[in-house]
């Protein structure tokens, strides 16, 4: 077991007019190597949740275990935890600051105390992993496009060789092509390195194709937790909280209601297409 949360609560600005109970009794276990999607409406507590995973936020109550050890224990090495659980923030391009791309990606490994050569080696590998073109390595990070900046920021985390990669809406504000490219790369990375990946998103459509498991957050509570198939079966409840199952779920349910012999639980377009074809051939 890689990460476990036990009855985690978090309250913003307790005791003031701005008080906000952002996480309510969240318990969660994430196995090593899993690809987990966390989904929820705006303000449901996704970003708050994941900032607990590497100790950037401390739970108001409850406990968090990384590899079996409580991270709130006296003298726990937070800095090491942060390099093992790599967290890519929402709009990470705003954290870039160095004179060129390569140096910026080196920032993480340098903080880990690696030598200059090692830093650069890790940085180059990471940039390659996210598919960043080599000819821009010496460019200022401020002169890149949004999607390229996003890649650099993700590489900045990957260069630290984390065991768990947490991404907060890595595709927000990207066009469909940029979005698919980034998601494909993350998927590739997951398969290649076997690292645990936790992906936060607004959109079921985006992540249904990739993840093994979906956790649905609603108003700070864990609402659903299961494989995409299990979660999408509750599509009516999802709608109530402002989310939606992928379009294919609706198409398949409609088809089934009109008497076609299809399985209603397809989660991806490919799966649905195969199923429809099969029902025609039968």
């Amino acid at each position: 077991m890689s990460i476990a949360l036990e009855h985690v609560n978090y309250v913003y600005s307790p005791g003031t007019a701005y008080e906000r109970h952002a996480l309510k009794d969240v318990s969660l276990e994430i196995e090593q190597g899993q690809f987990v999607g966390i989904i929820g409406h705006t303000g449901s507590g996704k970003s708050t949740l994941i900032q607990h995973l590497n100790g950037l936020m401390k739970a108001t109550s409850g406990n968090i275990y990384y590899e079996g050890q409580s991270i709130y224990e006296e003298g726990y090495d937070m800095k090491k935890l942060r390099t093992q659980v790599g967290l890519v923030f929402q709009y990470p391009e705003y954290q870039l600051f160095e004179v060129d791309v390569l140096t910026d990606v080196c920032f993480g490994p340098k903080n880990q105390g690696l030598s200059q050569e090692e830093c650069e080696k890790n940085a180059r590998e990471a940039l390659e992993l996210v598919g960043f073109p080599e000819k821009y390595y010496r460019q200022s990070p401020f002169e890149l496009s949004g999607g390229q900046k996003r890649r650099v920021a993700i590489a900045g985390i990957l260069a630290m060789h984390p065991k768990v990669l947490v991404l907060d809406e890595p595709t927000a504000g990207l066009d469909p092509k940029g979005r698919d490219e980034i998601l494909d790369q993350i998927d590739h990375l997951h398969k290649e390195t076997g690292m645990t990946v936790i992906l936060v998103s607004h959109s079921m459509e985006d992540i249904a194709n990739y993840v093994d498991r979906i956790v649905v957050m609603n108003r700070g509570e864990k609402m659903l937790d299961g494989t995409p198939r299990e979660v999408f079966a509750h599509y009516k409840e999802l709608e109530k909280v402002g989310l939606a199952a992928p379009q294919v779920t609706y198409v398949m349910h409609d088809l089934k209601e009109r008497g076609f012999d299809v399985a209603a639980d397809a989660t991806t377009i490919e799966e649905a297409a195969d199923d429809i074809m099969r029902s025609f051939h039968d």
Binding site: L56, R82, F89, Q95, G108, N111, M160
Partner: peptide, 16 residues
């Protein structure tokens, strides 16, 4: 708020 966000982002990259 922005400072807080950036600080956290750099801490996630091991900044001290």
């Amino acid at each position: 708020e922005e400072t807080d966000k950036i600080m956290k982002a750099q801490m996630a990259r091991g900044a001290d």
